[in-house]
Design a binder for these strands. Structure first.
Length: 475
RNA sequence: GCUCCCAUCGUCUAGCGGUCUAGGACGUCGCCCUCUCACGGCGAAAACAGGGGUUCGAGUCCCCUUGGGAGCGCCA
């Protein structure tokens, strides 16, 4: 009987949930689901200066939007400080850790000297074997781990393979700060142990930390969890995905008009693969996910591919789902694009009716809103340059000539208007496109749109004829 | 500087010694479909970083070089 799988996502609340964190959370979640285990959520808020309530809210909100759930209550690391200190003091009592009275300035000098000499920048262990009686008066000491000086520390990583460090290269890290609060290194180990975490899946910027944490586990005599360090996501330029390179919070992707399912599918394929499969439903992801499929090299973030996936998921969505998704972001992105912040029942009905033609042509919800301009546009319409050109180049005359036939239609449907327009084109010896394009321009203000006759059907007789008359009058 | 990690088309990747004249996807470029734009279909260009080994045989194993990345805090 092996212990049930327990993974955890442990962000520090110093900012929004960025895309890399989102993927880490996704991998942890998938792994837990795959093996019938649990994913825990721990907020690493021991940095009291930088942790904020707003960031915690943003992270929780981001996870929720992505559809990633966690088991049990959220664990706040700062609340466990007493337990962390207890472990540090236990190690101290057992002789596996010691008080270090070196001042920050002393440490800085040590680093400077090492840098100047081209040596590794490590703590030199000056208090490791000194008697506490030599302690300078009035200095609050930190507690450092008495790390092994010989031999090696090995991390058997599920993604990176077997990674080895010479212990002489690792220094005595601080476990407890002079103010009695735990360092990240200690807190992570104690929490993961107490939370019974079996698999630590995180970014490979933590790979070196895994070695140092392994030493803490060993000093405590605890079982070491499986480690899996996944490669980082880079920006399109290959550099680290940083804020200045446009690293966005997941909330930004929502505003950009991406669907959670699309982002999840994009993210899971960034660094992980399952043969040639590109599309994964959530169920398929869970069934197929494993650490053995995770690659070791960093991936660049590619918006073009994300857009393609998003278009795929939009087309696969029902009209009603799409309109609902639009309504979520409309208050935020609508007004700026000249669209309403909310859909009236009448407009909403038009959106639903036009959705089949609209969703074929958009890659994001924002594009969808934009291309639906003709639905919420008020007369007189504004025209894009290309549309204006179509009308100016004899288009208005054609619209005017065709108008009587459309007005005479006994019923107003896509089929009936199409019949009238085709008949008109045939009579006048024009190609359908020569008639359709000016009509499109007059009706939508654009040179591109969903099928012309669907547009007229959704707009209705009255509005369609009014827009056409607006142009015919100027012919 | 020191330690560690990585390296297949522009990008994400398949490949786990022979089935690779290297496959898929995005993007790009043609053609088809067509009332526009998309979607869809068909097709094309496009990669094993370089050099040494090991082996009957290397994209696949080892070493070096080069190029990326991460870490080196009383931050997380």
């Amino acid at each position: 009987m092996s212990a049930p799988v327990v993974t955890r996502f442990a962000p520090s609340p110093t900012g929004f949930l960025h895309i890399g964190g989102g993927r880490t959370a996704l991998f942890n979640w998938l792994y837990a689901k795959r093996f019938g285990g649990k994913m825990l959520l721990r907020i690493e808020d021991t940095d009291r200066e930088r942790s904020t309530e707003a960031a915690i809210a943003a992270i929780l909100d981001g996870l929720q939007w992505l559809g990633i759930t966690w088991d049990g209550d959220v664990v706040y690391q700062f609340a466990r400080a007493a337990r962390h200190r207890e472990v540090a003091e236990k190690l101290l009592a057992e002789g596996k850790a010691y008080y270090c009275y070196a001042s920050p300035q002393e440490l800085e000098e040590m680093r400077e000297a090492a840098r100047a000499a081209g040596k590794p920048m490590r703590y030199d262990g000056r208090w490791r074997d000194r008697d506490p009686s030599e302690a300078p008066a009035g200095v609050k000491p930190v507690i450092r781990l008495k790390a092994p000086t010989e031999g090696e520390t090995v991390v058997d990583d599920q993604v990176q393979g077997r990674v080895t460090w010479q212990n002489k290269d690792l220094d005595d890290l601080v476990l407890l700060r002079s103010d009695g609060t735990p360092t990240y290194m200690l807190a992570v180990v104690v929490d993961d142990h107490d939370m019974a975490v079996t698999h630590v899946i995180r970014g490979d910027d933590h790979l070196t930390n895994a070695a140092r944490q392994t030493q803490i586990y060993q000093a405590c005599g605890w079982d070491i969890p499986m480690f899996a360090h996944i490669p980082l996501i880079h920006g399109p330029d290959g550099a680290k995905l940083s804020k200045r390179h446009g690293a966005l919070g997941v909330d930004a992707y929502r505003s950009l008009g991406y669907l959670p399912a699309a982002l999840r599918n994009y993210l899971v394929r960034l660094g992980w693969s399952h043969g040639d499969q590109e599309f994964f439903s959530t169920e398929e992801m869970i069934a197929a996910f494993d650490l053995s499929g995770v690659g070791r090299s960093p991936a660049r973030f590619d918006f073009a591919k994300l857009e393609h996936l998003n278009g795929h998921y939009m087309r696969a969505s029902s009209d009603e789902e799409l309109v609902k998704a639009i309504e979520v972001i409309l208050p935020e992105v609508g007004p700026a694009k000249g669209a309403p912040a909310q859909l009236s029942p009448e407009l909403r009905a038009k959106f639903v009716a036009a959705m089949p033609g609209l969703k074929e042509r958009a890659k994001t919800l924002v594009e969808l809103i934009d291309s639906a301009y003709y639905l919420y546009a008020q007369r007189p319409l504004s025209f894009e340059p290309k549309a204006e050109q179509l009308l100016a180049d004899g288009g208005r005359a054609r619209v005017a000539a065709l108008l009587p036939a459309l007005k005479a239609l006994p019923e107003w449907t896509a089929a009936s208007t199409e019949g009238a327009v085709r008949a008109f084109a045939e009579e006048t010896g024009a190609k359908l496109g020569q008639v359709a394009q000016p009509l499109r321009a007059a009706l939508t203000g654009r040179s591109t749109s969903p099928g012309l006759f669907d547009v007229m059907a959704v707009l209705g007789r009255e509005e369609s004829l009014a827009r056409l008359e607006d142009q015919a009058a100027k012919a």
